[in-house]
Amino acid sequence: MCILFVIIGAILGGILGEVLKNVPSLAGVMPFLVTSSPVFDMAPVTINLYVIKLTVGLAFMPNLMSMLGIILAIVLYRRY
């Protein structure tokens, strides 16, 4: 359940950052909060099984808003 809270917090934090990026009164702060930095990037791997072709890749590129969402999700999980 905690992992679900963390994932949803990261997604909602990232979405909130993208929404607030266009607010004129926050124009000075938001570029720092929504700039993503790659932490983990695994190149896509393709597996051809002749019936199904499967391509899998994974990238973790958080921004500060998604990290704030993760922290808020952990705080809410502890209260739950």
Rank of each mutant, 00 (worst) to 15 (best):
I3D: 08
L76D: 01
V19F: 09
G13M: 05
Y50I: 14
L20A: 08
S25I: 14
V51S: 14
M1T: 10
M67E: 04
I15H: 04
D41L: 08
M1Q: 10
M30P: 12
K53L: 06
E18P: 00
F60D: 09
V6S: 12
L16I: 11
T55N: 06
L64G: 05
C2F: 10
A73V: 02
S25Y: 05
I3H: 03
L26D: 01
I11Q: 14
L16C: 13
G57H: 00
T35P: 00
G28Q: 10
K53D: 10
V56G: 00
M42K: 14
I70E: 11
I8V: 15
C2D: 10
I3V: 12
P62Y: 01
G9D: 07
V6W: 01
M61H: 14
Y80M: 13
M1F: 09
S66A: 13
L76W: 06
M42C: 07
L20Q: 04
K53I: 14
A27P: 00
I11K: 14
P24W: 01
L12K: 09
P44H: 06
S37R: 14
I11C: 12
V39A: 09
L49E: 08
I70Y: 04
G69I: 06
L16M: 11
I70S: 08
S66M: 15
I52H: 02
L26K: 02
G13L: 05
I3K: 04
S66E: 11
V45F: 02
D41W: 01
N22Q: 11
P31V: 09
V19S: 01
S25L: 12
K53R: 15
P31I: 07
M65T: 13
L76M: 13
T35A: 15
F60K: 08
M67L: 15
I3Q: 08
N48W: 06
Y80H: 09
V39I: 15
N63H: 11
L64M: 09
V75R: 06
T35I: 13
V56D: 02
A59G: 09
L16Q: 02
L33D: 05
M30Y: 10
V19Y: 03
L33A: 07
I74K: 00
I3G: 08
L26T: 03
V51M: 13
L49Y: 02
G14A: 12
S25F: 09
G9Q: 07
M65Y: 05
A10R: 01
G14V: 03
V23Q: 13
I70K: 04
M65I: 01
S25M: 11
T55R: 11
P44L: 02
L64N: 04
L20S: 04
P62C: 08
D41A: 13
L58I: 13
L76Y: 03
M65E: 04
L68R: 01
E18Y: 05
L54C: 11
Y80Q: 05
S36G: 09
T46L: 03
M67Y: 06
I71Q: 03
V39H: 03
V23M: 07
I74V: 15
G9K: 04
R78N: 11
L64P: 07
N48R: 07
F40C: 12
G9T: 03
G13S: 10
L12I: 14
I8T: 14
I11W: 08
S36N: 14
Y80G: 13
F5T: 08
S66V: 00
V39N: 02
F40D: 05
L26V: 04
